[in-house]
């Protein structure tokens, strides 16, 4: 252990050029430690076998599958709405823009359960019941999960998209226009490629938030095993029946799966830039 630590110190000698760098790296060290601790205490509690065993169970597989599908669809829908909205907020000076910007973060400001309750109330209105009867059923159904997660993913994605497009120089679009681009072409050939990494980040952040949601989706869709039981719901239910080992094992599975996806996306971003 001493040798490992010394080697760590040795490596840092090259990275630290001055005191400021040392402070920055300390912050990195602290952050990493905090996050690792969260994972390691759980792993220490359950051991390595319990999470792996959980992965083989049908219920757990279904919960993972459901979590992926719902959060995937929700975050795709969210980014599709977030891109034009974020672009408009970044480029167009319409009246009341400041108000709109404040409104868009409402889904993540209200507690997730309040969001679920609000969605339930929507489907009690006339329009809501019409939609439920003639189009899609949301309440207590899987589409309800997707809807709740959409709101959460969108609120985060739109903020990131907006700041991404703000960082793309509007003058580039101007020049493109004069070179013959319609507004759409200027967006597609200039702004969008330059905003690519920011948009991917917006998508990933929205997706991660959707994956981890419990309050909103469980309120509107219930927690029916095999139907609307996502991973976070499953974790809660296990905790509620005092099956701590299983709850923590599932928590590790969820964490691991999410982190792997985020890493893969990060590599994808880095490879093509």
């Amino acid at each position: 252990m001493v040798v490992a630590a010394r080697r760590l110190l040795g490596a840092q000698r090259d990275m630290i050029r001055n005191r400021f760098d040392a402070i920055l790296l300390t912050a990195v060290g602290v952050s990493t430690t905090l996050m690792l601790m969260l994972i390691l205490v759980q792993g220490a509690y359950t051991g390595a076998k319990a999470p792996l065993r959980a992965l083989t169970e049908h219920d757990v597989q279904h919960a993972i599958y459901l979590s992926f599908i719902t959060s995937g669809l929700a975050s795709v829908a969210a980014i599709l709405l977030a891109i034009p909205t974020g672009l408009a907020l970044a480029r167009i000076q319409f009246p009341g823009r400041w108000l709109v910007e404040s409104l868009l973060i409402v889904p993540i400001v209200m507690s997730p359960i309040s969001l679920g309750v609000a969605l339930l109330l929507i489907f009690r209105t006339e329009a809501g019941t019409w939609i439920e009867d003639h189009l899609i059923r949301f309440v207590f159904e899987v589409p309800g999960i997707i809807l709740a997660e959409f709101f959460l993913a969108y609120a985060i994605s739109v903020l990131v998209v907006r700041s991404t497009f703000s960082a793309v120089d509007a003058r580039l679009e101007q020049v493109a226009r004069f070179l013959g681009c319609t507004p759409w072409q200027a967006f597609r050939h200039v702004s969008l490629p330059l905003a690519r990494n920011g948009i991917i980040a917006a998508f990933v952040l929205g997706w991660v938030r959707a994956m981890g949601d419990f309050g909103a989706s469980s309120t509107i869709a219930g927690a029916v095993k095999g139907k609307t039981e996502t991973m976070p719901v499953s974790i809660y239910l296990n905790l509620a029946s005092v099956s701590l080992d299983r709850a923590i094992a599932l928590s590790l599975v969820l964490t691991f799966v999410t982190v792997v996806v985020v890493i893969m996306v990060g590599l994808l971003m880095r490879r093509s830039s």
Partner: peptide, 19 residues
């Protein structure tokens, strides 16, 4: 609209497309 005017514009910061 700008794309129909057949002008070319070189702004002060040149605005070369970095990508």
């Amino acid at each position: 609209p700008p794309e129909q005017r057949r002008f070319s514009y070189v702004p002060q910061d040149l605005a070369l497309f970095p990508h």
